[in-house]
Design a protein around this nucleic acid. Structure first.
Lengths: 207, 207
DNA sequence: CGACGTTTTGATTCCAATCAATGGGTGTGG
DNA sequence: CCACACCCATTGATTGGAATCAAAACGTCG
């Protein structure tokens, strides 16, 4: 049930904002980001996608892509023509289920990001690191040692902070002995502490 | 293709967080809000739903609702059993399309809310008012005269601000002659100005 | 009328953005 | 191989906008 596979070179786009919607995509190998250009020309990172994750779901509504999907490293992507998905999912219940869940999960993903609005910077970054850690772990990598494929600016853009703030918070985590950071190599030393920071609301209430 | 219709009394819940997912819902008449309880016990409004809008899409992924849907006024809601939707949409292409689009639109909705993260308070509120205005207009109501069915606190919660800030910004809009406000009755006097505020990024670049 | 919930307004605080400068890494060409 | 340039990251100083704290005005309903 898999369509063609295509390679996307680092820095080039799998699809761009405004492209007519024809297919959904699943990352096979590599690492992508999705981003949009705001009215003022600044770019806003909507998410990062790694192996097994789907792209393009937002394009169904208007039959046009609403963001650019850009490879952050040479990537291998599976193309699934949407009309084929439509017709096949009419016959194969499992596929229908899978598709609906993928969409629903995307709604949840955006929602949980939304939730961070209004949270302090350190909580957002803790959550960002934990999320990355989990996703990498689910793919067989170390839970504690991660290599960030994106710049501080891109992280900030994704979680709603400025790059300086990202840098400061990373430094703070390092000073507190929660992580070690060398450039883009992050080592999580104290997972529990990170989790506590990410859910700090709890304590502020227990007070 | 419509299931049963049920009435939800003002203040009571159509569904609650954790409820097993069985159906999607479409508002017939009335006005609902969806909200979740954060770990610290505070409540966070995820959105407001009016006639024609769908609820429950976020529950598909985990077969459980992730928010409470509460009627803000006596409402009339159409219940669509999900397994029936599934099987019917396998036969009726139009329904399948409709469902997919509804999900995709929900993804877009969350995304456009996300976009407001980092915007100044007045831009968010301008956007909020415009959004409400559009949706009411699409349902045959006046574009400029609206009655807010929710409190300042709920508005703030939905757009990521504190109630005092919401109140201040409303006062500011009124002082600038953009709107008149008496309690929850809002009259938009200068739609163009409101739109400019909502897209202020443009000007800050043109500078 | 009186009590409660909501809204407005004011004073102050605090966090992240901004402005600004320095340091570190990487890659290229002399 | 080193020097230079460029990009990215860190750190410091200052500013600004929303949150917070606090109090008063308004509305609604029993």
């Amino acid at each position: 049930m898999v369509g063609a596979r295509i390679k996307v070179k680092r820095g080039s786009a799998l699809f761009a904002t405004g492209d007519r919607f024809k297919s959904l995509y699943v990352v096979r190998t590599g690492f992508l980001k999705t981003e949009t250009t705001l009215e003022d020309g600044r770019r806003w990172v909507r998410g990062f996608q790694m192996a097994g994750e789907m792209l393009g779901l937002d394009a169904i509504a208007n039959e046009a892509h609403t963001c650019d999907a850009i490879a952050m490293e040479d990537s291998d992507v599976c193309v699934m023509p949407y009309d084929l998905l439509e017709s096949t999912s009419r016959r194969v219940v499992a596929l229908q289920r899978h598709l609906h869940r993928a969409m629903s999960r995307e709604i949840l993903r955006e929602g949980s990001l939304m939730q961070q609005t209004g949270m302090p910077a350190q909580e957002r970054l803790a959550a960002f690191l934990l999320n990355l850690s989990e996703r990498l772990h689910a793919r067989g990598f170390s839970r504690s040692e991660l290599v960030l494929r994106m710049s501080r600016e891109e992280i900030g853009s994704a979680v709603g902070l400025k790059l300086e703030t990202v840098s400061r918070m990373f430094s703070k985590f390092a000073a507190d002995g929660i992580v070690t950071i060398q450039q883009r190599h992050v080592n999580i030393l104290d997972m529990a502490a990170l989790r506590e920071i990410a859910n700090a609301k709890l304590r502020s209430c227990t007070h």
